[in-house]
Design a protein around this nucleic acid. Structure first.
Ligand code: FES
Ligand code: FES
Lengths: 146, 146
DNA sequence: CCCAAACAGAACCAATTGTGTACTGTTTCA
DNA sequence: TGAAACAGTACACAATTGGTTCTGTTTGGG
C-alpha cells in the first residue's frame, strides 16, 4: 500500500487552509489547531517542518505566526511531500549511483527505478497548492456533509 | 519518504529475472533463491503473492515451479505493486466516498487526492515488465561492476 | 504404495518506522 | 519584565513491515 504519512496528509490540509485564507498573512499554530481540531503540538510540528523547507515563513514573538512563503501557484504538492515525508525514493537504490540492494546482486534495475521515480516526482510537482485550494473551495454539491 | 516495501522491490527483481529467462517455463523457488541470494522462505512468500494476484502460474508437485502467467508486455509495474503492496492509496480517504480523516473535518481534499492517486496509478501502469527486463538486459556500459 | 520435491497457507516474532506528546529554549513586543 | 508564540529536542507508544517457521497438500517417481 503506497501511502504517505498522516502528517503529510494533515500538512497538505493545513497549507490548503492557509492558501484559502488568502494573503491574510500571519496565522498562528493555536488558531489552526482550533480550526482543524488537531492537537496543537502536532500542528506545531508540521508547520515547523514546512517552515524549515522554506514553504512557510515564520514570525516569532507576540503577534507571530506562519504565512505562506510563496504564491500558492508556486508551491507544488511535490514540495510539500518533500518537506514532510523526505525525498521521494521508491527504492533504496534511487538517487546516487550506488546499488545497495542486498540480494539481487546485479539486478540492473537501478536505471529503471530512477526513471520511474522521476516520473512520479513530476506527477507530484504538476499539482500546485493553488489548484488544491481552488477545487477544495468549491466542492461538489453532493459532498459528504454539506 | 515515499518508498515501496523491500518485498515489492525484490518481487519486481524476481519477475524481471523470470522475464529475462524467456519462455523457459517453470522456475522453482529454490532455484531463484540460489540465483539471487535471498532466503528461500522470502522468495516463496513473494512468489506466492504474485501467484495469488494472477501474475504467475504455479505448478505443484515434483517438477513444479512458477511461470509468468502472461506476456511480459501485458504485465505492468502497477500490477506488481498492487500484488505485493496492496492497492495504491495515497491517503486514507482515497477510494470510496468516505472521508475518514480524523481532523480537518471538512477539508474537502478528497477529490484532489483521488485525482492525484489515479495519475500515480497511470504512471505505474505505463511501465511494463518487458520494458524493465529489456533495459536491464543491456545496461549502460559504465555500469557499476561490469 | 510410499517417499521426496515443491507449492500453499497460517502463525509468529523481531525490527523498524511513524505518530503523537512533553519539555525546554529563544525571540519579540507590550 | 513578562507573556505570547515559534524552535528544537527527546521520548514513549502503536502500527506496520520484514522475515522465519511450521504444518498441510499436491504431484511424480521408484
Ligand atoms: S534493486 Fe537497486 S539496483 Fe537492484
Ligand atoms: S483528508 Fe480525506 S477528505 Fe480530508
Amino acid at each position: 500500500m503506497i501511502r504517505l504519512g498522516k502528517l503529510t496528509d494533515y500538512g497538505v490540509g493545513l497549507m490548503t487552509r492557509m492558501a484559502q485564507d488568502g494573503a491574510a498573512g500571519l496565522t498562528n499554530a493555536r488558531d489552526l489547531s482550533g480550526r482543524t481540531g488537531m492537537p496543537l503540538p502536532t500542528v506545531s510540528k508540521i508547520l515547523k517542518l514546512l517552515c524549515q523547507a522554506g514553504l512557510l515563513e515564520s514570525r516569532r514573538g507576540v503577534g507571530g505566526g506562519y504565512a505562506l512563503a510563496r504564491d500558492p501557484r508556486q508551491i507544488t504538492l511535490g514540495d510539500m511531500v518533500d518537506a514532510l515525508e523526505g525525498p521521494v525514493a521508491l527504492t533504496e537504490c534511487v538517487g546516487d549511483g550506488d546499488c545497495n540492494c542486498a540480494y539481487l546482486a546485479d539486478c540492473g534495475l537501478q536505471q529503471q527505478w530512477n526513471g520511474i521515480n522521476r516520473r512520479l516526482q513530476e506527477t507530484l510537482n504538476s499539482v500546485t497548492l493553488a489548484e488544491m485550494a481552488a477545487e477544495a473551495a468549491c466542492p461538489s454539491p453532493q459532498g459528504k456533509g454539506a
